[in-house]
Structures are given as structure tokens and as C-alpha cells.
Write a protein that binds this DNA or RNA. Structure first.
Lengths: 175, 175
DNA sequence: GTCTATACTTCGATAGAC
DNA sequence: GTCTATCGAAGTATAGAC
């Protein structure tokens, strides 16, 4: 999927990687849609656990930011989004997962985010959309070879996150 | 491309739409890569002109924001990004175009953006990355069926853009 | 410029032997 | 569970007649 795109994933090529005959792919998954769904579910499970670690870390916002900046993760996400746009069964599953991911972020970070200065104009949910959107898109642009404005944005955001998360850490256990 | 993805675009189906035999596609474009390149170039030309209109409008930031929020444009962009990730000739062309698009934004809007309060921490180029990234990503999430945090973010950004562009309009022709 | 003909590859999916 | 065999469809690309 990463090298040649989801459309290049065929039963024959999957079987070849596994050292089996291509017909076995249909024995295990029946259709290619089910294979993609299974791949996505496994990957989603890993993603959820990875996010849990990020949310439980010392600086969860920075960890989330780094997580969304990962180029491999972004490329894979984009492949699945492409897949979702053209196969409705997969779209439903991805939408479900994406909402779950964000719901967990909100659950874990709304308390922290409410202490942010932008809380005056944006609820925690919108701050999360902001944070993850920018990092995902920058990662995508970098994969494409773009660079204008990236460096300054990344350093500014990281500096800001660092200060914010340092400042709020002390008042975590407020009475 | 929009309905079934770039991978579903074949010489046979293109010819069928045109009411011609599929071999003629190869007469006009030789390879499918060249066909995609030609489609992209035409679309890029339209995109540049569309952006020029936006940049020349009364409120260019709002216009740019709306432009990036368009779901059809976003879906098509994502198809081409997917294509770029797997065909290097197309990747080069898209990267060239994307940089051109942003360079024009910067040329037209840096003066305006320097008057923004965020200029203290972010150069105009980074502000553009911020603005366009968020709108593109929100459009993508909405296409997927997500909604958490969107409405509040959209209204807040638009309200902010409106105030900012109203305030700066009067001092445009500063001596 | 458009056609027919064709070479060659790859694809998803099913049936049935072992 | 793994295999062989096979169907029918679709894919890219080229050659050559008109």
C-alpha cells in the first residue's frame, strides 16, 4: 500500500509475499474488501494503543503533535482515506475509527485544553482539530517535497506547546 | 477519478466516455501517465486562475479559506496526491505546482499577513500553511463523515477573518 | 484521425481434488 | 488448509489498414 497504493494490492501479490497461492487469499478473506477491512482494523488497534501511550505521556499535546507528523503514518492514513472515498464499507469503518480516536483525545485532554488561552474562542474539540489538522497536512506536504513556511511553523508550535505544557503541569492537581 | 479513484481511470473507460475506441487514448497520450499529467496541467491552470480571482477579491483570506474548504476540489487534490505518491513523474509536476500556488499566495498576501497579530511569532508563509492546512483537512474530515469540533472552528475562524480583513482594509493605502 | 486486430499481463472469484 | 484448474473480464500498449 505504501509503495504503490491500495489499488496495487491484489490477491496475487499478497499471496506472493506470503509464499502461498493466490487463491488462498480468497479462502481467508473471500473478497479484497474484507482483506482491506482486516488490515485496517489491525492497524487501527495499533493506532489506538499508540495514542493511549501518547495521551498518558508527560506532554500529551506534544506527543499527539509528533504522532500526526509521522510521515509513514500519514501516508498510510491517506491510502485508507483514498480507499474510503471509493468503497463504502471501508468508509464506514474508517469514519467510526476516526471519531473514536478524536473522542479519546477529547476525553483525555479537554481538561488541559480548557486552560489554554485560545479556550476563549475555541472549545477543546476545535483545538484538537486545529492541532492534528496542521501536523497531518504539513507531513503530507513534506512528503510531496514542499517546504515553504514549514520550518518556522514547526518550531513556533513546538515552542508554544512546550511552554504551555510546562506551565500547566504544576497546576494539574488543583483542589 | 472522483467517483472511483485514479486507479479506476483506464484507457478503456476514458475512451468509452468519449465514444471512441480505447486504442485512441494511446494515440493521443501514448501512456496513461501522460494522460494524467495532461489532466493535471489543465486542472492546475484552472486552479491558478481561480486563486488569482480569490487573491484579487475584497477579502482574499476569506476567499482562500473558502477555496480550500471546497469538498470537490479537496477530493480531487487528494486523488492527485495519491497519484503523486506512486508515480514520480506526476509527483514532480504536482510539487512544482503546489509551490507555485503558495508562492503566489505569499506574493499577494504577505503585506496583509504581516499586519496580523500572529506575525509576532509566525511569518506570513507559516500563516498561509496554517490557514490552508486546516481548511483542507476539515474538508477532508467532513467528506469522511466526521464532525467533532468542526462547526465551532469554522465559525470562529470566519469571524476572526472577517474582523481582521475589515480592520486592515482601511489602512491598505498607508503612506 | 480512427479503425480493427492482437499480444501479453493481470485481475477477482469459484469449483473441486487432496 | 492448501493445492490445481479455470472462467471471464479488464488492463496497457503496439502494428497496420483505411
Amino acid at each position: 500500500m505504501l509503495d504503490e497504493g491500495y489499488a496495487a494490492v491484489s490477491a496475487r501479490r499478497v499471496a506472493q509475499k506470503a509464499g502461498l497461492k493466490f487463491q488462498l487469499v480468497h479462502y481467508y478473506f473471500r473478497t479484497m474488501d474484507e482483506l482491506f477491512l482486516e488490515v485496517f482494523r489491525r492497524r487501527a488497534e495499533e493506532g489506538l494503543q499508540e495514542q493511549e501511550r501518547a495521551l498518558a505521556s508527560e506532554r500529551p499535546l506534544q506527543a499527539l503533535w509528533n504522532f500526526s507528523l509521522d510521515p509513514t503514518g500519514t501516508a498510510l492514513t491517506m491510502e485508507f482515506v483514498g480507499l474510503a472515498n471509493h468503497r463504502k464499507a471501508i468508509k464506514a469503518e474508517i469514519a467510526r475509527y476516526a471519531e473514536l480516536i478524536r473522542a479519546r483525545q477529547l476525553e483525555a485532554l479537554s481538561g488541559l485544553l480548557e486552560r489554554h488561552e485560545l479556550s476563549a474562542v475555541l472549545p477543546p474539540s476545535s483545538l484538537l482539530v486545529l492541532l492534528t489538522s496542521v501536523s497531518r497536512m504539513v507531513a503530507l506536504e513534506q512528503a510531496l517535497g514542499m517546504s515553504i513556511g514549514h520550518a518556522e511553523l514547526l518550531t513556533a508550535v513546538e515552542k508554544h506547546l512546550q511552554h504551555f505544557e510546562e506551565d500547566t503541569k504544576s497546576s494539574d492537581a488543583a483542589p
